[in-house]
Amino acid sequence: MSTLLELSGVSVSFDGFRAINNLSFQIGEPELRAIIGPNGAGKTTFMDIVTGKTRPDEGTVIWGEKSVSLLRMSESHIARAGIGRKFQKPTVFESQTVRENLAMALKNPRGPFDVLLYRKSAQGAARIEEIAAEVGLLDHLPRMAGELSHGQKQWLEIGMLLAQEPRLLLVDEPAAGMTPAEREHTTDLLKRLARKHAVVVVEHDMEFVRRLDCKVTVLHEGSVLAEGSLDHVVKNKEVIDVYLGR
């Protein structure tokens, strides 16, 4: 497994508060990783840095086999390079069907004429069905996205990320607000995706993290406090003091 993303010595401050403090982190491809930590640990800022929304004050963020610096790239370039992010609250086009949502997300040429001349291709239709089957929405393609349950909207948004053909998926608190059955489906989906992609899941729900059965990184005050299996990190005295003991 080769390293896909590597952060080294990354720090960023907002109004004198160090949100990220000399953070080093790496993930391979394919790999599933969970990131846990108390509120204010730097989990969201970490994702903001990787996706180009926030520029660090120091450190390096290196991507891919060619060791490209993400810090020189815009948010849109980073997305095109293969980094997809799913926010906690699903953002789907509610007045469009599931099929239309996936069609809009497909990785196609994006120039003004390309969009005007775009015709539904057999290849595109097949890809939409493949993605819908992957996320568990094949039977729901004709439905309006607004009619879907909360969990189904989350899966549709993951499908829309997959349509962009990412190599790394950053997924923020996917279990929040889901029914037990939806959570189980989501666990299975993320584990399946991690066979081909790098997947980082930021999550508070320890039971959900346990079911992911992957390496866990614990953040605290913008740094890595512990890393390893969940059983390993939950026995760490510092992790118990700052996070689990609360």
Rank of each mutant, 00 (worst) to 15 (best):
166 P>M: 03
168 L>K: 01
168 L>V: 05
168 L>D: 04
168 L>T: 05
169 L>S: 05
169 L>P: 15
170 L>I: 03
170 L>H: 06
172 D>K: 00
173 E>T: 05
173 E>P: 05
173 E>L: 06
175 A>K: 12
177 G>E: 10
177 G>L: 08
177 G>C: 11
177 G>D: 12
178 M>L: 15
178 M>A: 07
178 M>Q: 09
179 T>D: 01
181 A>S: 11
183 R>M: 10
183 R>N: 11
183 R>S: 14
185 H>K: 07
185 H>V: 11
185 H>A: 15
186 T>L: 15
188 D>S: 15
188 D>K: 14
189 L>K: 13
189 L>C: 13
189 L>T: 11
193 L>I: 02
194 A>H: 07
196 K>M: 04
197 H>I: 02
197 H>P: 15
198 A>C: 00
199 V>T: 11
200 V>R: 03
200 V>S: 04
200 V>P: 02
201 V>K: 06
202 V>D: 05
203 E>M: 06
203 E>V: 00
203 E>P: 12
204 H>A: 01
204 H>D: 04
204 H>G: 09
204 H>Q: 10
206 M>T: 00
208 F>N: 04
209 V>Q: 03
210 R>H: 13
210 R>N: 03
211 R>W: 04
212 L>T: 13
212 L>Y: 12
214 C>P: 01
214 C>S: 08
214 C>F: 01
214 C>Q: 03
215 K>I: 08
215 K>Y: 11
215 K>W: 03
217 T>C: 00
217 T>V: 08
218 V>Y: 09
219 L>E: 10
219 L>Q: 04
220 H>Y: 13
220 H>R: 04
220 H>N: 15
221 E>F: 08
221 E>Q: 10
222 G>S: 08
222 G>V: 06
223 S>H: 02
223 S>L: 00
223 S>E: 09
224 V>G: 02
227 E>Y: 11
227 E>W: 13
228 G>L: 00
228 G>Y: 02
229 S>I: 12
229 S>K: 14
230 L>F: 14
230 L>V: 08
230 L>S: 02
